[in-house]
Design a protein around this nucleic acid. Structure first.
Lengths: 130, 130
DNA sequence: ATTGACCTACGAAGCCTTTCGTATTAACCT
DNA sequence: AGGTTAATACGAAAGGCTTCGTAGGTCAAT
């Protein structure tokens, strides 16, 4: 298994649609993306998705005229990968520092803070274990 | 003020050296980087740093023959920017989810967990306030 | 059958990043 | 001064990402 590259910005936008919407055609993806970013060209999205198929980021079903694309990598796995990457590249591996900046940026609401606290509890319970 | 782009991978490596070591010459930076990544070419680093000066990512003092480069953006500010960026691009803005993946990736040690918990306390004290 | 709508395939351009070779300039030493 | 060392400047190539125009195929309805 070859070590996966980070998906590019464009690829990530498409993956996010596929993760949220499930298997989709190029037209599906394009119409969603062009809502957020008007002016997005159809063939641009098409080409990108073709390339992603080449890279095995997505699979496609060619049974119908309009091919149906599905993500081949999982969202949580990708998130983990990208977070780990950022952790190394800009925080020298310090998760604490990263969390701090994340909270400073987003000023998470109390509910989110509670969620995080809850996660910490779980991590401390079984977590230290390797 | 024009909205800053994300620094590239190469630029980030250099910035990290400058943040840690303070104002440095190309030779300084090169000798440190080539320790971690043998085979790194001297002129490669030079060129990169020249480009960074063009982009105002760094400033340089040309008084001496070997120019001395200093970072022009701050580490914490860059960290905040990049974390916010990742938050939007891959976590749809959910800090809680991002923190979770960060902890899952790194299995932070108990000491770090305690630090994070402490930060949460502070955030809840003054932080929730809009 | 012809048209029109919609789809994929393909190639190419433009831009950015990284890398490196070569040329030039400056400093130092004897 | 001449030669060596070490620095910068510059150009260019290679590769990746994004964008888009154009060509060609398929299907259905007229």
């Amino acid at each position: 298994m070859t070590k996966q590259h980070r998906p590019t910005d464009g690829e990530l936008e498409i993956l996010r649609v596929l993760w949220r919407e499930g298997p989709s055609t190029v037209r599906d993806v394009h119409s969603i993306l062009s809502k957020a970013k008007p002016g997005t060209g159809y063939t641009t999205v098409l080409k990108l998705m073709q390339i992603m198929a080449d890279k095995d980021l997505v699979s496609r079903d060619e049974k119908n005229k309009a091919h149906v694309y599905s993500p081949r990598i999982r969202e949580d796995q990708t998130q983990k990968q990208m977070v780990g990457d950022l952790l190394d590249r800009v925080f020298g591996g310090s998760a604490a520092r990263m969390v701090m900046q994340a909270l400073a940026t987003k000023k998470a609401n109390p509910q989110e803070l509670a969620e995080i606290r809850h996660m910490l509890d779980e991590f401390e319970q079984n977590g230290g274990a390797r």
